[in-house]
Lab assay of single mutants.
Amino acid sequence: MASQGTKRSYEQMETDGERQNATEIRASVGKMIDGIGRFYIQMCTELKLSDYEGRLIQNSLTIERMVLSAFDERRNKYLEEHPSAGKDPKKTGGPIYKRVDRKWMRELVLYDKEEIRRIWRQANNGDDATAGLTHMMIWHSNLNDTTYQRTRALVRTGMDPRMCSLMQGSTLPRRSGAAGAAVKGVGTMVMELIRMIKRGINDRNFWRGENGRKTRSAYERMCNILKGKFQTAAQRAMMDQVRESRNPGNAEIEDLIFLARSALILRGSVAHKSCLPACVYGPAVASGYDFEKEGYSLVGIDPFKLLQNSQVYSLIRPNENPAHKSQLVWMACNSAAFEDLRVLSFIRGTKVSPRGKLSTRGVQIASNENMDAMESSTLELRSRYWAIRTRSGGNTNQQRASAGQISVQPAFSVQRNLPFDKPTIMAAFTGNTEGRTSDMRAEIIRMMEGAKPEEMSFQGRGVFELSDERAANPIVPSFDMSNEGSYFFGDNAEEYDN
């Protein structure tokens, strides 16, 4: 993207840094990872977990959730003011799984939030270390993106479920800051804005008074975040219109849905970061690795190297396929839920299948599930090659597409044709070009129609051997075009429920 120079890199967003050079960025990201790792080690000690239990991804998720809940100030305040039966607002906890007599047992633990905050700050040299908290939120978000298709949420806001490739980060909490905003897809931002506008339509006082002023500035800020994701002048001009509207209503909703559809071809720039579970960072720190000293990046080879040398386990339900569970977590670790499966298959070195073909449910185990038949197995999170994460949407291309997802959002900077089903997408653009945004709409449609099938995206960008740390010898991959490109292809993934 041309304006790259004016933006802070995501590592800076990730670490609240002012302008830093590459070495400083690597050190501050490393410091953040160190903090998460030290916190995780301490929690495993508190909970008396064995090494194996500490490497269980379900335990990692519970521990991450506990610290996120302990620092969720708004919710904590709300819980104190609106006490609900049987919930102690000062405590947080969740299921911890232990191996007892050759069987997995679930144990519900409860801790004072104050105590968890103390352990977290102690692991982070006394700081609140917001960057580390956001990092864990993005890992949870990436896992949700890989596990669930947001059909219901899309339909509720009037969008087409086939636009799911635009929904990265749709389950990120509001408090995820600049680093969170960077990884949100165009569809996620559109959905947040539509929800806001709908509230304004239904509630006369939404934009009024002292609160209304705050609401208005939040609305304009979200519009600017979305505008910054678009790469064409016409899309940005249309966002200006939406932002400046005196009284946002149905016309703005129409414009936003139009823009979301246009992003299936004229893709937005959305950041991709490899955020790993805390149970990967903990053992690495415990083994003596100093992330701050060595430096770390979320968008280069580092996460690949770390996963190459990590042992992570997962509980497996009786009829689940461990290899499929591994694929789910591998995609989440690489922030690749909406990437082209052919690119992923090449990088991973084994075939990556669409969601609907995987015999696996989510990673988390519900409290009512029976533990008797639970097994555990090693997650295979290694890769054959590594590639640089991208934040450009890439230019655009036609490809055989599917009944489910009709476009992709690249996660890796790797040369390819970008699949999208042009006739299906263009069919949504018939007729409606009147109104105050008509010239911009016409211009956007013209650009979409001009998108050429034979153009290559990320020209000359390749993948790298894991021994090639400096990215000196790019390998331009070859793809098996007979395979499906979309992950949520004609899909039956479970729906995400809060």
Rank of each mutant, 00 (worst) to 15 (best):
M1D: 12
A2D: 00
A2I: 00
A2P: 00
G5K: 00
G5T: 12
T6S: 01
Y10D: 11
Q12N: 14
Q12H: 15
M13H: 01
E14T: 06
E14W: 03
T15K: 00
D16F: 03
E18S: 09
Q20W: 00
Q20T: 01
T23C: 10
E24P: 01
E24D: 10
I25M: 14
I25E: 02
I25C: 00
A27Q: 14
A27G: 05
V29P: 02
G30R: 03
G30M: 07
K31A: 10
M32D: 05
D34P: 00
G37T: 04
Y40N: 05
M43H: 11
E46S: 04
K48M: 11
E53D: 13
G54S: 14
L56A: 09
Q58F: 06
N59D: 13
S60C: 13
L61Y: 12
L61H: 08
L61D: 13
T62N: 15
I63W: 04
M66G: 12
L68S: 12
S69G: 15
S69H: 09
D72W: 13
D72I: 03
E73W: 08
R75N: 08
N76D: 09
E80K: 08
E80D: 13
E80G: 11
E81K: 07
H82L: 03
P83C: 13
S84V: 04
S84F: 00
A85K: 10
A85T: 14
K87W: 04
K87D: 01
K91W: 03
G94N: 10
P95H: 09
I96V: 15
I96E: 05
K98G: 01
K98R: 15
V100I: 08
V100W: 01
V100N: 11
V100L: 14
R102F: 14
K103V: 15
E107G: 04
V109N: 01
L110N: 03
D112L: 11
D112Q: 08
E114D: 14
I116G: 06
I116K: 04
R117I: 13
R118I: 13
W120N: 10
R121F: 09
Q122S: 05
Q122K: 04
A123M: 06
N125K: 06
N125A: 06
G126P: 01
G126H: 09
D127W: 09
A129T: 14
T130Q: 12
A131D: 05
L133G: 03
T134I: 03
H135M: 13
M137A: 04
I138A: 08
W139N: 06
H140P: 03
S141F: 12
S141Q: 01
N142F: 09
L143C: 13
L143H: 13
D145L: 02
T147A: 06
Y148L: 01
Y148Q: 02
R150F: 05
R152T: 08
L154S: 01
R156V: 11
T157Q: 09
T157S: 15
M159P: 01
P161F: 00
R162M: 07
M163Y: 03
C164T: 07
M167H: 04
M167C: 07
Q168G: 03
T171P: 01
R174Y: 01
G177P: 06
A178F: 00
G180R: 06
A182G: 11
V183A: 11
V183M: 09
V183Y: 05
K184V: 03
G185M: 04
G185L: 04
G185N: 06
V186F: 13
G187M: 05
G187N: 01
G187W: 07
G187V: 11
T188F: 03
V190K: 00
V190Y: 02
M191W: 06
M191Y: 13
E192M: 11
E192P: 06
I194H: 01
R195I: 05
M196Q: 15
M196L: 10
I197C: 12
I197E: 00
I197T: 15
R199T: 11
R199K: 12
I201Y: 00
I201W: 13
D203F: 00
D203T: 04
R204K: 08
N205A: 13
F206G: 03
W207A: 01
E210S: 08
E210D: 15
G212Q: 05
K214R: 15
E220S: 09
E220L: 02
C223V: 11
I225Q: 07
L226S: 14
G228D: 04
T232C: 11
A233S: 00
A234G: 08
A234V: 09
A234C: 13
R236Q: 08
A237W: 01
A237D: 04
M239H: 02
M239Y: 05
D240L: 05
D240N: 13
V242W: 04
E244A: 10
P248S: 12
G249N: 07
N250I: 09
E252G: 06
D255K: 10
I257P: 00
F258D: 03
F258Y: 12
L259F: 02
R261L: 07
S262I: 06
A263P: 00
R267N: 07
G268W: 10
S269P: 13
V270L: 12
V270C: 12
H272W: 04
H272T: 02
C275W: 06
C275A: 14
C275M: 07
Y281A: 12
P283S: 13
P283D: 04
A284R: 15
V285Y: 11
A286F: 07
G288Q: 10
Y289H: 15
Y289D: 07
K293R: 13
K293Q: 11
E294S: 14
Y296K: 06
Y296F: 12
Y296E: 04
Y296T: 11
S297F: 12
V299D: 05
G300Q: 05
I301A: 12
D302W: 10
P303S: 11
F304E: 06
K305P: 06
L306D: 10
L307F: 11
Q308C: 15
Y313M: 04
Y313L: 12
S314R: 02
S314M: 02
L315R: 07
L315C: 12
I316P: 02
R317S: 07
P318C: 11
P318T: 10
P318N: 04
P318V: 13
N321Y: 12
P322A: 14
P322V: 11
A323T: 08
A323E: 01
A323L: 14
K325C: 03
K325N: 11
S326M: 11
S326V: 10
M331V: 12
C333V: 10
N334M: 11
S335V: 01
S335M: 01
A337W: 12
F338E: 00
F338S: 11
E339D: 15
D340G: 12
R342D: 04
L344V: 06
I347P: 00
R348P: 06
G349N: 06
V352H: 01
V352I: 13
R355E: 10
G356P: 06
G356S: 07
K357P: 01
L358H: 11
R361P: 03
R361C: 00
R361W: 01
R361V: 14
V363F: 08
Q364E: 03
A366V: 03
S367E: 03
S367F: 06
D372C: 08
A373M: 13
A373C: 13
S376T: 08
S377P: 02
L379N: 13
E380K: 10
S383D: 10
R384F: 12
W386Q: 10
W386M: 06
R389M: 03
T390E: 01
R391A: 02
G393V: 09
N395F: 03
Q398V: 09
S402F: 01
S402Y: 06
S402L: 02
S402A: 12
G404R: 05
Q405T: 02
S407C: 15
S407R: 10
Q409K: 00
P410T: 02
A411N: 00
A411L: 04
Q415A: 15
P419C: 13
P419T: 04
D421K: 00
K422Q: 11
P423C: 06
M426P: 02
A427N: 13
A427E: 00
A428L: 01
T430A: 14
G431M: 13
T433P: 10
E434N: 10
G435E: 10
R436E: 09
R436Q: 01
T437R: 00
S438Y: 07
D439C: 02
D439Y: 04
D439M: 04
D439Q: 06
R446K: 13
M447R: 13
M447G: 06
M448I: 14
G450Q: 11
P453D: 13
E454Y: 12
E455D: 08
M456T: 04
S457H: 04
S457Q: 15
F458I: 10
G460F: 01
R461L: 09
G462N: 11
F464G: 00
E465H: 00
L466R: 00
L466F: 14
E469S: 11
E469P: 08
A471F: 00
A472T: 15
A472F: 10
N473Y: 03
N473D: 04
P474Q: 02
I475M: 13
V476N: 00
P477D: 00
S482T: 12
G485K: 10
S486W: 02
F488C: 13
F489C: 06
G490Q: 02
N492S: 13
E494A: 09
Y496R: 03
